[in-house]
Design a protein around this nucleic acid. Structure first.
Length: 532
RNA sequence: GCCCCCUUCGUCUAGUGGCCUAGGAUGCAGGAUUCUCAGUCCUGAGACAGGGGUUCAAAUCCCCUAGGGGGUACCA
């Protein structure tokens, strides 16, 4: 039994598509599960410009998800080269063989002639198979034309008298009638190979045992099977996995429909967080990551283990109840038999819930480092190496607890990093919690209590406030919300006493004074929620 | 037009003829806890696309219809 070898063949497009990543993941999982090898082959035919810079983000995405490749760019291997642009000789050699054996032919018809014939067939309601007129040209004539540099393509001569059957691991038996397959062009006029042909030569040359790819390639399969047979290759096993669809739809997720996705209920939230975060960390301009790109999730502070888990669960399941799985669990359990047949919409809600879980598993020091990174990029802290900064952010991150879902969430707590006199009050919060009958008076009174506090730590302050409300026969809810809004400008957030401790007495008193001013000013809403 | 694939709660899925009055998760709604939010716990609503067969028995097998998708290139 031959070794398990799978491959993924990305085009250097400048970004890694999240759906493509899922297909790559399945290839990687299958190889790792069986102790086989995973090959990365770069499909860079017809785009020699800037392959390197267009490939980098793709390799970065693989590294981010920790999908290592055994052969391919950077690591090489025994079946190289791994860039299709460097495999020209292999393709021409294969074409020569087919030509010599009469399994392919030179076609001298012009694109215009072909199109005319196709239109005519369509008008008659016939299936267009091509004319094969070039087959009737005699050898001397062909030699003559070749000599004269007559433009032509090479077509594969499809055996029309048979059917093609594959036993697809995911879809089962699929059959096509060879009599309905037009002769495909395998070599362009300029001598470059077409995808369908290059894939066959490369899959065989790289000894790929299992071709695991998205289902949009299912219709290419009969031609590829025929080509493999014509070239005398051992057929790989095919597994056509469903493509990844836009959230809540069955439409293939496509970068071209990005603007439309802004109105997709699930996607909208991702776009909105991106709008809130990316400009602040200097990624809002050209090349801004969007949710179709793997890079989006990295840049926004998702965890690779969460994306890995979510992607694996898209079109695959372990059993009837397991959702949270480590990469080891998934690798151990992964089989193609448990891949579903129907397209699956990217499940943003599930990703969010998986992300929340995996975030709880990250150690405190990592959480601190990553949050510091965002705060630094956003200019909210000057020096991320400063010990006092690190101590402060460390305490904030602990106080955030499970409110920190993705690392960029820390930016929502900017009230802890801005000067007291520019902190923004949320208008609705002010209206609901501060500008209420009797509240300013209570706040003013409690301010004096705070001013007299000896120790400014959360525990002490809680005792202080509880004692204070008890004396006055109040409930804690009557004052605590007002204080929260006064010192943070917001109606929700981390524990209120932690807020006070983190800010310290000076800021707390200054902010309460500002809030009191705000309450006193009639129609003072103009000074509220006016960021600048 | 032709070829191929797909169709279970809003979503991701379990289900390979009886264990299905269809299970889990997520989302949603209600409740409990709490200073808010988040979290946690409890409760609830929520699906076999439609129609014919086959069978004692069908979400599961067959046929038809409908819907969705992919392909039909000197794209990948």
């Amino acid at each position: 039994m031959s070794a398990i070898r799978t491959r993924f063949a990305p085009s250097p497009t400048g970004y890694m598509h999240i759906g493509g990543m899922r297909t790559a993941l399945f290839n990687w999982l299958f190889a790792r599960h069986h102790g086989g090898r995973f090959v990365l082959r770069i499909d860079d035919t017809d785009r020699e410009r800037n392959v390197e810079s267009a490939l980098a983000p793709i390799l970065d995405a693989f590294r981010w998800l920790e999908l290592d490749w055994d052969e391919g760019p950077e690591v090489g291997g025994t079946c190289g080269p791994y860039f299709q642009s460097q495999r020209g000789a292999l393709y021409t050699e294969a074409v020569q063989r087919l030509l010599a054996e009469g399994k392919a032919y030179r076609c001298f018809e012009t694109p215009e002639q072909i199109r005319a014939a196709r239109d005519e067939a369509e008008a008659d309601g016939r299936t267009f198979l091509g004319t094969r007129r070039s087959l009737e040209i005699d050898d001397d004539r062909i030699a003559e034309w070749l000599e004269a540099g007559q433009p032509h393509v090479v077509r594969f001569l499809v055996p029309r008298d048979r059917s093609v059957v594959i036993d697809d691991v995911v879809r089962g038996r699929v059959e096509w009638d060879g009599g309905l397959i037009p002769d495909p062009v395998i070599l362009r006029g300029d001598g470059s190979p077409l995808y369908n042909f290059a894939t066959v030569v490369d899959d065989a040359g790289m000894e790929i045992s299992h071709v695991i790819r998205a289902e949009e390639h299912l219709s290419n399969t009969p031609v590829q099977v025929l080509l493999h047979e014509a070239l005398g290759h051992v057929l790989p096993t095919f597994a056509h996995v469903p493509y990844v669809a836009a959230p809540g739809t069955q439409e293939k997720l496509s970068k071209r429909k990005l603007e439309k996705y802004r109105n997709n209920p699930q996607f909208r939230r991702l776009f909105e967080s991106a709008d809130a975060v990316l400009p602040r960390i200097g990624r809002g301009g050209d090349g801004r990551p969007d949710p179709v790109m793997v890079e989006y999730y990295d840049v926004m502070g998702y965890l690779p283990e969460a994306v890995f888990n979510a992607l694996a669960r898209l079109g695959w399941s372990l059993d009837d109840r397991t959702e949270i799985m480590s990469r080891e669990t998934i690798t151990e359990a992964f089989t193609l038999e448990r891949v579903v047949k129907s397209p699956a919409g990217l499940d943003i809600d599930k990703l969010a819930s998986l992300q929340a879980h995996w975030m709880t598993q990250r150690p405190a020091d990592e959480r601190l480092e990553r949050c510091l990174g965002y705060l630094g990029d956003a200019g909210l802290v000057e020096d991320v190496a400063d010990p006092s900064v690190r101590d402060f952010v460390g305490r904030l991150v602990v106080a955030m607890g499970e409110r920190l879902k993705v690392y960029s969430d820390v930016l929502e707590f900017d009230e802890f990093f801005v000067a007291d006199d520019v902190m923004v009050f949320d208008e609705r919060a002010v209206k609901k919690r501060l500008r209420k009958e009797g509240v300013p008076e209570l706040l003013a009174a409690f301010r004096e209590c705070l001013a007299a506090a000896e120790r400014f730590d959360a525990g002490e302050l809680e005792i202080l406030m509880k004692g204070w409300v008890e004396e006055r026969d109040l409930k804690i809810g009557q004052i605590i919300h007002a204080v929260r809004v006064a010192v943070t400008g917001k109606s929700s957030g981390i524990g209120m006493f932690e807020c006070l401790e983190l800010l310290g007495p000076e800021s707390v008193l200054a902010r309460i004074d500002r809030a009191l001013l705000l309450c006193g000013s009639i129609g003072g809403s103009a000074t509220v929620a006016d960021p600048s």
